[in-house]
Simulated assay, not measured.
Amino acid sequence: MKPAALGSLVRRYVEHRRSLGYSVHACDLRKLLQFACFHHSEAPGKPLQAEVMLKWAVLPGTGNANYYAKRLIDVCGFARYCATFDPQVQIPDCRLLGYGHDRVAPHIFTSRQITLLLQRARNLSTKCSPIHNLTYETFLGLIACAGLRTGEARALRVADFDAKNRTLIIRKAKFSRERVLPLHPTTARALQRYLDARLPLAPDAPWFFITATTAPCRPVIFAQPSSDSTRALSPPAPAPRAFMTCATPSPHAMSPNGTAPEFLPGAISCC
Rank of each mutant, 00 (worst) to 15 (best):
A57H: 09
V75H: 02
Q90P: 00
R30P: 00
V52K: 06
D74A: 12
A50D: 11
K55G: 05
N64C: 13
S23K: 12
Q88L: 11
Y68P: 06
G100E: 06
V75W: 00
H107N: 06
I91V: 15
N64M: 05
P106M: 03
N66D: 14
L117S: 03
P47Y: 00
R112F: 07
L97R: 04
L48R: 00
F35S: 02
E51P: 00
Y81P: 02
Q119S: 13
L117Q: 06
A69I: 06
P92G: 01
Y68Q: 15
P87W: 00
A79K: 04
P44R: 11
H39M: 04
S23L: 10
F85R: 12
A50C: 08
A69H: 05
H40I: 05
L72Q: 08
K31Y: 13
N66S: 12
C37E: 15
D28G: 10
A79F: 02
S19E: 11
C37P: 00
G63W: 09
G63F: 08
Q34C: 10
L48H: 00
V89P: 03
L54Y: 04
C94S: 15
D93S: 09
P87H: 03
A26P: 01
G77K: 02
F38T: 04
L97F: 10
L116S: 08
L96P: 01
R120Q: 14
T84F: 04
L118D: 05
L117K: 05
P44V: 03
A105L: 14
A36G: 04
D102P: 02
K70A: 15
L33Y: 05
P92N: 02
